[in-house]
Design a protein around this nucleic acid. Structure first.
Lengths: 345, 345
DNA sequence: GTTAGCACTCAAGGGCGGAGAGTGCTAACA
DNA sequence: TGTTAGCACTCTCCGCCCTTGAGTGCTAAC
């Protein structure tokens, strides 16, 4: 990116910023008079109009119809987010609110994640989503197999950070509960300290040697475990918040937004894709999903023990309060990272 | 209930039924001419008007304004559901659809529940909810404790029917992983075949005797397990369907409906409360939640091995297609019961 | 370069009238 | 005595017109 002042002079920037700020608050097209009246502007409406005309030509503003004010284009939001947003800081009350509601006495990761999603949605009044910590990349401490019925067992994977995940797997009917217990011990012993993803190839020979004829079955089980452990869960809260915004007062539009949220697959993909960039912002058509073409999605990552282990984000109308959302996300990312770092030892 | 023909003669019944049927399809007030035109009616609009006037006086019909048709009151819906609904039967296509989408090859209870909820919502186009099988009342086959970090462990309860549930519990820091394993074996041995709910008092003395000084800690752990096992989970699908109905085109109304669904606590309560009646119907203000006062909730139970183990239901506008919904619910209840009975051996 | 002034555009909202759906009453009919 | 035709009446809905007001773009003057 070249220096943006070569693209837009300072005055245009200030005017554009004023328009975006105003539009974010009111959702109504902004006129030249409104901008001119801002105490720090000191220019007549006529001058503003000339500048607005230029900004429209440059693609930063759009006009719903001739005699309406202007609304920001996606291009304007991108510029706004990157170069001219007031990076809001949380008020003391807000910080206090987070501290108070992220109950650090809770000892279960899932519960902490749910609380985080709730707080995120409540504070922003948009839809929030939090990816539960990902096992991939963590080291396995223990894998327990619990016989449930003939043909099925529950696999519980515990990582060295204390993150757990469990799933039902099918097992060969030939295996007795005792066999399962033996295998459970064996694979824990062999896999201990390895990453689950890399474990199978590297550890299989050893296991194969020890379990003899049932090696194939065990091998399949391990693959089954790996497969189910790489599935991601995401906690989504506050989908109905979208109905608070006039952009979505049309039932049909709200319907397709909510349906997209409910399936969750796109959002899940976004969170996964963004799980290595500290903060990502997708504006409008940046989103592949047509149902979210009037939405923005902002995500941040969170860590435990200095390593990224998950991400969370907010979905709202493109006209969202970027400054506030980003501030809340940053703060929450730190809080959650702290809590998890302690919680997961 | 006394014989209803003493309350309403046959003709009034037929007219009321015609009105309810029509209103369910169109959501528009029904006039005398519309009713009269039905091929099986054979009465002039004027006659119908007289009867409608009576029905209004009796509280079965309401009039939005003088020159509009009539709409059914809650009282009418109750009568309709109890005495005059055409108990719809599923078409072959519909039965086929269910068979096809309830994939019996799936071996995990949770997955089956999710599929059921999806099918239920897709077929009715209302919001569906399915309670996951309840452990209470089942007999414990196995309780495994898996050490996760110092101070916490995962408890996995497996019942004799193969239903599982797991949760994190905190454990006294004094216990080593070996202790935990020992205790895990011990409680499985002692609790095996008992109901979890009744197990603790009856089994505690034996356990107390064997674990010696750590008895109190173990006791607390067991209570913790019991507490978390009695928590219920419910799968909700298709909340956004409500936006397809003109009654909820008002964003504010849709908002409060969706918020109520999202918290889920009321619906969960309804499902729990109804988990011993084969089919229950709550119409309008039967629902305690003010946000659901224009909704009806219909639930059925499902079984495994001849015993009720859970329930599911549908939430929609009071003007819902009761016949269809009840038919789908009945059919699905049987299907799910069959699948679970096989699945849980 | 900035601004005042002015003609022009367009959406939103209020008022009005007709159309249409539906009712309730009355009187006639079987 | 129950049923029906007829009719006056009531309301909502919809389209129409007009006004209002916000906002623009252009021009000419500062």
């Amino acid at each position: 990116m070249s220096d943006i002042t070569s693209l837009l002079d300072i005055r245009k920037m200030r005017i554009l910023q004023a328009i975006v700020d105003d539009y974010i608050m009111t959702a109504a097209p902004v006129g030249s008079r409104t901008v001119s009246k801002r105490s720090d502007m000191g220019l007549s409406p006529a001058t503003i109009r000339n500048e607005m005309s230029d900004l429209t030509e440059l693609g930063f503003l759009e006009q719903p119809h001739t005699s309406a004010g202007r609304i920001p284009s996606e291009k304007a939001y991108r510029l706004y987010v990157n170069h001219m947003m007031d990076q809001a800081k949380l008020t003391d009350d807000e910080a206090e609110y987070i501290k108070h509601h992220l109950d650090t006495r809770v000892h279960e990761v899932g519960e902490v994640i749910r609380q985080t999603a709730k707080v995120l949605s409540d504070m922003t009044n948009y839809t929030s989503m939090v990816l539960v910590p990902q096992l991939s990349g963590m080291k396995v401490k223990r894998i327990s197999l619990i016989p449930v019925s003939e043909g099925s067992a529950m696999a519980v994977v515990v990582t060295n950070t204390g993150v757990t995940k469990n799933s039902m797997i099918s097992i060969p009917e030939s295996l007795t509960p005792e066999d399962i217990e033996k295998i459970s011990k064996l694979i824990t012993e062999k896999l201990d300290g390895h990453r689950l993803t890399e474990a199978i190839e590297s550890v299989l020979p050893a296991i194969r040697a020890e379990v003899g004829e049932q090696a194939d079955a065990v091998c399949e089980m391990l693959e089954d475990i790996e497969r189910s452990m790489s599935e991601t869960d995401v906690e989504v809260v506050g989908a109905s918040n979208i109905l608070d915004y006039p952009e979505y007062s049309d039932a049909q539009k709200a319907r397709s937004f909510l349906a997209e949220i409910e399936t969750g697959s796109y959002l899940q993909q976004v969170l996964k894709d963004s799980s290595d960039v500290e903060m990502s912002v997708r504006i409008g058509t940046d989103n592949d999903s047509p149902d979210l073409k009037d939405c923005s999605v902002i995500t941040v990552t969170y860590k435990a023990g200095g390593k990224n282990i998950g991400s969370m984000g907010v979905v709202g109308p493109t006209r969202m309060d970027y400054g506030k959302v980003m501030a809340v996300l940053k703060y929450l990312s730190n809080s959650l990272s702290d809590i998890l770092s302690k919680l997961l030892k």
